[in-house]
Design a protein around this nucleic acid. Sequence first.
RNA 1: GCGGGUGUAGCUCAAUGGUAGAGCGUUGGCUUCCCAAGCCAAACACGAGGGUUCGAUUCCCUUCACCCGCUCCA
Length: 545
Amino acid sequence: MSGTPPMAKRMADIVALCKRRGFLFQSSEIYGGLNGFWDYGPLGVELKRNIKDAWWRDMVLGHNELDAPAGAPSAYEMTGLDATIIMHPQIWKCSGHYDLFHDFMVDCRESKKRYRHDQVRGRWAEFEGERIFVATTVEAAEEDEDTRRRAMKHFKLRPKDAERLALSDTFTSLDRVDDMTRVLGPDAKSLGTLTPPREFNLMFKTFVGALSGEEGAAFLRPETAQGIFVNFKNVVDSTRVRVPFGIAQIGKSFRNEITPRNFTFRSREFEQMEIEFFCRPTTSAEWYRYWRDRRMRWYLELGLGGDRLRLREHDRDELSHYSTGTADIEYAFPFLPPGEFGELEGIAHRGDFDLRSHMEGKLDPATNPLRLEVDSDGKPRWRGSGKDLSYRDDLTNDRFVPHVIEPSAGADRAALAFLCEAYHEDEAPDEDGVMRKRAVLRFHPRLAPIKAAVFPLVKKDGMPEIAKEVYSTLKRRLSVFYDEKGAVGRRYRRQDEAGTPYCITVDGQTLVDRTVTLRDRDSLEQCRIRIDDCVSEIETRIGGA
RNA sequence: GCGGGUGUAGCUCAAUGGUAGAGCGUUGGCUUCCCAAGCCAAACACGAGGGUUCGAUUCCCUUCACCCGCUCCA
């Protein structure tokens, strides 16, 4: 490990703790693992469930539609949805994923660079009967100069011989070139270094029906959002919700990442927590700001903070043409270089792109106002559903296609961020007063997999019996853990590593007055409370902490 | 996808072309009235496949996974 940067070492410690205590395991580990897939162990599943439950409660169930929350333009409604992972294949064509995720890539054996096949352009150059295709990826304004210069260099021509080089006037896409051996790669010095185009399927393909022919081909969803858009009309027709309102969904999504890396950060199977919030076009900018700030505050409330969490508003040139705003909530994960942040959640103003694409056919995101994307015959590139997804306000009687604000969060990334944020090493004195290192996960009590542990101080004098009684009472309401084995100090430390915020210990005085000690994970302080107050005390601390 | 590194017990690490060890952790027992204590005992490992060899955890090849750097990142 020599030479390992301190933060990478810290990340390695976190990964080791996750495995040791049962937060995260590599998927299929006994068979050697599977790249980009991770399993949640007994503690991890509780952590992730708590995160998802907190999100659902705070965004959906706990939302009061009767009052406008602070910062919101008006009161609004929230509802939930659970759509299938496999949906009609046309959905991904209209959403844009099919085009974006079905790239043909070429690799350059010389420069080791990888290009999207359709994004490499170039033109033919001929000198003394030898004809080569000079490829480039520079901006259109510089194409002429770049390809001319590199063609000259390839044929070892001096400036005065420039007119002996025949250059075609038109630039074409690399996908029009059949013979890759005649291609000079954008960053190559020798000819024919590009591999033949290879298909990259960023969406997982599967087959519906027992007979697996292309007509049954379908995809595992690469995002949960489309399940919401295609159910927009169903929700409006069945629930009496009125714009503005949001539909929330938690579920698995799948992307065939080219390079899964960084523990669970870029997994191929992952879970999203998404809201599509539908509002009037005229108020969409205000709603965008509300959701951006609301979502940022949610992470802060659950303990992510300091300079490791930031809200990054996208620059204008990063935005889609139709969008008036996109922000990322980002966390400085320990595996990233100092100063770099990884995305936890994106909050995007999506205009009416999605609903209209599912009505009319895929729109061209490069246009504003949005126009239908057409093929060379002027026909829609991808046909929409043809269904009317506009919304009629029956009070004002006007009809419009709602605009959408999309807060899209990664549940696994949130879990990883909360784990990294919670991880602390500190020193605490042992019974001889010697300082010993301890690892402690300082989860927000709402997120902690185990809320409290119950111990008899020693395994005799009737203490286990009372402790079991306390445990049984708590277990009806809370995730708790009972432990009577070994020294009490070791039991405390075990709970510290699991992130358990409170430990309740039955001791000699309990036998006298039915009080127990309540030990705080972070301060190590203890106070005495009555056995009968245990449930309310812990619940108060979790709720109010 | 490319280059480099690493795979030995749950974890951290040894050793070895010929019976694979330790510390910590885990489990059981004893002791123990507050922060990984002590004593006794036990279980658990050479990532996978192939090759060389009388014999491979060790040497070679392939593969898988993880880490670092590039590349990619809707």
